[in-house]
Design a binder for these strands. Sequence first.
DNA 1: CACTAAAACGGAGGTGCCTCCGTTTATTTA
DNA 2: TAAATAAACGGAGGCACCTCCGTTTTAGTG
Lengths: 216, 216
Amino acid sequence: MVQPPILRSVEKKVPDQEMTAEAKRDAHAPKPLRADAQRNRDRLVEVAAQAFATDGVDASLEEIAKRAGVGIGTLYRHFPTREHLVEVVYRREVEGLCHAAEELAREHPADVALELWMQRFVDYIATKRGLATSLRLLLTTNSTLFSDTSGRVSGAMRSLIEAAAAAGKIRADVDASDVMHALGGIYSAPNTPDWRERSGRLVKLLMDGLRFGARG
Amino acid sequence: MVQPPILRSVEKKVPDQEMTAEAKRDAHAPKPLRADAQRNRDRLVEVAAQAFATDGVDASLEEIAKRAGVGIGTLYRHFPTREHLVEVVYRREVEGLCHAAEELAREHPADVALELWMQRFVDYIATKRGLATSLRLLLTTNSTLFSDTSGRVSGAMRSLIEAAAAAGKIRADVDASDVMHALGGIYSAPNTPDWRERSGRLVKLLMDGLRFGARG
DNA sequence: CACTAAAACGGAGGTGCCTCCGTTTATTTA
DNA sequence: TAAATAAACGGAGGCACCTCCGTTTTAGTG
């Protein structure tokens, strides 16, 4: 059953670097998806994120599959339970938030970047609220998820704040965790229809406070 | 539209005391159920408790209704969501546990009462584990439920211990919350098949420790 | 006791969940 | 490029959830 090595001087695919990459993957393999599978999976997450935001966690999975243009079976192969899907959507949201921090920092003055990011943070919280019950369960059950995400988010904010302070765009005597704490108010605010506007104003106010007495 | 007061000297029903009772009820009215309704409700809780214990929280509600000899509609009228039913079953379990404490104290020597009660406590924990995910959610959502129940249970144990200590059946230098803490080990123990026996032995061991050095 | 209003019953039916498996598609090999 | 094979697709079917409303039962009244 062992393949005889005939003219194998050039291994068609899988050169050394790729071997290494594969070996690394094997440690905690998320598996290399086939091209179409990856496409469908991405599409599902995309649509699910939208659906959860609009209709809450109880959005119909069959509807999500339909809107993503795949069969319900495909959805279930990728995400055996609703929680799996929720978790992935949530992680994606966190990912996006952290990525946005880097991008904003690159494209804007430090204080503007911070403000824009905090505005985006409001959206993030909105998602988190939408997923509330499921997330609470997930976050107590799956402690990795909790430490991963909360660490990454607060880390992203910390660097934005430090950068803005270093650039003299905001006062230097503020602690990142204090700001995070202030933003916490958004989370616990009541669920009124004008919640979004209200939170937006809170962020602006907070920024004014941060800019007050800045060096430059 | 105002009824003229003709010969209303004796208001057939609703004498003064009942008025008062009704007024009191109105404060946080659980409403006076019609006889048949009460019967059905009791039956449902009874059956549900059994079903949850056997099949976990995901027991089929339709099956529960059937076994209770009522229609599914009746179940849903009494308990709009699965969580409502879970909560009631759980409260009933707590109730039973506390009631057992009084009863055992009446019918047995103080130390025996304590031991028997702790054995029953094992059953209670078993239920709690069965309902785990739902309960966790309920207990974080509905904080009243948490404080109510945990307070009552630890209170029941406290009085059993104090009685036993006062009667000289167990040593007097133990703190009730320490014993409660020791029992906590039951809860966090792994979910092996011999869990019940194991926990039973733990209780016995604990009792030996408590009896050691008792006055009488 | 007969009557009636109010309350409770119960199950048909519409919807979503999830599994299973025959069909289709991507990738590899010759 | 064609054939082979591994992987992914997708939807039919079966089950549970839950709502809605016509029917039945209870409790009060004359």
